[in-house]
Design a protein around this nucleic acid. Structure first.
Lengths: 204, 204
DNA sequence: CTTGTATACGGAACAATGTTCCGTTTAACA
DNA sequence: TGTTAAACGGAACATTGTTCCGTATACAAG
């Protein structure tokens, strides 16, 4: 066993201080890498070279591999991070906007998230074990968030009642992963159209 | 323009002898490469290294690249070749078997073709321009073949009438590209089940 | 502040793979 | 049989994922 350090707990479930502090530079680099990966993935798709991500983050590739098991692990981490952000935005929108607007805004947020993941669909089908838990992570975090917003909008009589959270997630994902990636606003326009459709048939 | 030889007409529409013969060894190697690629793709998926294909064909990689523009071009060529074979089998089956059996056999042939293309779905979504014409090639050759068999089976009253060629192609492709690739017969069993379903509700 | 040390860092080095280049071989034809 | 254009093989090159290890440094104890 030549293993000496394995990728460590960059996103532990108990982030409060543990036995022996995580070195400050390490934490900074993990954050920089996740942020850089998000940027590069959005610009060049999830197939972007690892070196490019490390460069964007201002670190060496060795540092990247210290914190993530492999490129698939990095993609998964970025994915989870954005899913979390997306899920966390739901309650805030619910608290600060009318029900339908909260729902519509959240859907656009979700659409933006999917749009910046060019190549993810292929990656998910690539068979890498690092991706297997992603779909369920997706379901466990995004669906409840959307369901809350959707329920509120329904209660307010702002949307039709024959569409559920899965319908929305599936439809929006399909629209955003379509092959028309050259027009970045195309997806958002299609999603807007879809969202308007949600209103149709709502009780006055 | 440093181009001096570009990949030539390995599958011309008029294969009979033209002005200045194609060198016999060249033709032999093209065939060997297509056959080798088919074998290797079936065994290791379309992501198999080009060196492995060249080795299986008993040629150098230079020869491979003399006849195909790049790995995507080779994949596309193999794909077209098998589509052609599949399409050509339809009239033969129609002539030699009862309508329903002809249809069922052809569907299994098609299923076998899809099953040996592990990774093709991802490849098609990879954005390589060599793959863009494939879906339409698919439609133009396979659908008419199937439609003929399906019409004959319908006329004979052997299958239900609420299913069309696209339904069948789509359903069989889905079944065969599912994640259960470890049991090679799993796909065929599922397809058999589906084919039996086609009978259900047929007029006596 | 100094010092010791576990931790983290950077990037060279390695491996796998797609693609190109070019000296050598050979099929076809006169 | 000789000539030649075409084709061949595989070494060499480029790109990328991953590992290794000598060096630098954050943190805490004195």
């Amino acid at each position: 066993m030549s293993n000496d350090s394995g990728p460590d707990d960059a996103r532990s479930a108990v982030p409060v201080e543990m036995k022996r502090s995580v070195r400050a530079d390490a934490q900074r680099n993990v954050d920089a890498l996740l942020e850089a990966a998000k940027t590069v993935f959005a610009a060049a798709g999830v197939d972007a070279p690892v070196r490019e991500i490390a460069k964007e983050a201002g670190v060496g590739v060795g540092t990247l591999y210290r914190h993530f098991p492999d490129r698939a692990g990095l993609i998964a981490a970025v994915f989870r991070r954005e899913v979390d952000a997306c899920a966390k935005a739901a309650p805030e929108l619910a608290a600060n906007r009318p029900p339908f607007e909260a729902l519509a805004d959240w859907i656009q947020l979700f659409a933006g998230f999917i749009t910046t993941k060019r190549g993810l669909a292929s990656a998910l089908h690539s068979g890498s074990s690092a991706f297997e838990p992603l779909p369920s992570y997706f379901d466990q975090h995004l669906r409840p968030a959307l369901e809350t917003l959707l329920a509120a909008a329904r209660t307010a009589g702002a949307v039709r009642t024959d569409v559920d959270a899965d319908d929305i997630i599936g439809a929006v994902a399909s629209l955003c992963m379509s092959t028309k990636i050259d027009q970045p606003d195309h997806a958002h326009r299609m999603v807007s159209l879809f969202v308007d459709g949600l209103r149709y048939g709502a009780q006055g």
